[in-house]
Simulated scan of single mutants.
Amino acid sequence: AHSDDKGLVVPPKLAPIHGVVVPIWMKDHQVDDMLKAGQELFNKLQETYPGLDFELDDRRQQKAGVKFAQWEQKGVPVRLELGPRDLEKGQVVVVRRDTGEKEFMSQDEAIAKFGELMTTIQSDLYEKAKAFREENTHLVDDYETFKSSLEEKGGFYLAHWDGTDETEAKVQAETKATIRAIPFGDTEEGKCMVTGKPSKQRVVFAKAY
């Protein structure tokens, strides 16, 4: 849930860097002006959000596309692109790492909404991860069904376990799955899917990849 083909997708609450300002220029004579504008935007973001961390990508030798790809790979939640035309219009391009959505905003609006955007991204990533977990969690009572389903589609399996190390070791040896979690508040008693012995509750089995 926290990565894609481009690299990491880091939730804001875990991100070491929350936003990166990337000045863009087409010609050499634009470099100094764009770096100055980028520095000013970076300073305003830092002043407005002292609890967040920002970066200014002021590297002169790297092309914009390379910079974009590198920050996407690192999973920085938001990229703020600032080119000569944006500077003329007093705007900035705000790019979300999680969705790839781009939005043109005035610099003042981008700064004012940055905190709200962090909250939105955090919530969206949580809901996405929660939906993924629910879609890939299966209830199973029969060991043979567990083995075949695990082999075919993977995922997480809520199954009864008799509480012994021997049974967990048997499951791991035969399927490479182990107990990944013991849910709190689960009081459903039953029979172990492997041995048929009494089980106090279901646990989560899954493979580690």
Rank of each mutant, 00 (worst) to 15 (best):
D4P: 15
G7K: 14
V9H: 12
K13H: 15
L14K: 15
P16W: 05
H18A: 09
V21T: 01
V22C: 00
I24M: 13
I24S: 11
W25N: 13
Q30E: 14
D33T: 09
L35M: 14
K36D: 07
K36N: 07
A37R: 13
A37E: 12
A37P: 03
N43R: 11
L45W: 08
L45D: 08
G51P: 01
L52S: 08
D53S: 11
D53K: 15
F54L: 09
D57W: 13
D58I: 02
R60M: 04
R60E: 03
Q61P: 02
Q61D: 11
G65A: 07
G65D: 07
K67E: 01
K67W: 00
Q73V: 07
K74P: 05
P77M: 04
L80Y: 00
E81L: 07
P84W: 05
P84Q: 07
R85Q: 13
L87K: 10
E88H: 12
G90M: 03
G90I: 02
V93A: 07
V94A: 12
R97H: 09
T99P: 00
E101H: 10
M105K: 15
D108A: 10
D108P: 01
F114Q: 02
E116H: 12
T119Q: 15
I121E: 08
Q122H: 06
D124F: 10
Y126A: 13
F132S: 11
F132A: 14
E135P: 00
N136K: 14
H138V: 06
H138Y: 13
H138I: 05
V140S: 05
V140A: 03
D142A: 04
D142T: 06
Y143N: 05
T145D: 09
S149I: 01
L150Q: 07
L150T: 05
K153Y: 08
G154D: 03
G154Q: 02
F156N: 14
W161Q: 04
E166P: 02
T167I: 06
T167H: 07
T167E: 14
T167K: 12
V171S: 04
Q172L: 11
K176V: 00
A177L: 13
T178A: 02
I182V: 09
I182M: 11
G185K: 00
G190I: 01
G190N: 03
M193E: 04
M193P: 04
V194P: 03
S199D: 01
Q201S: 12
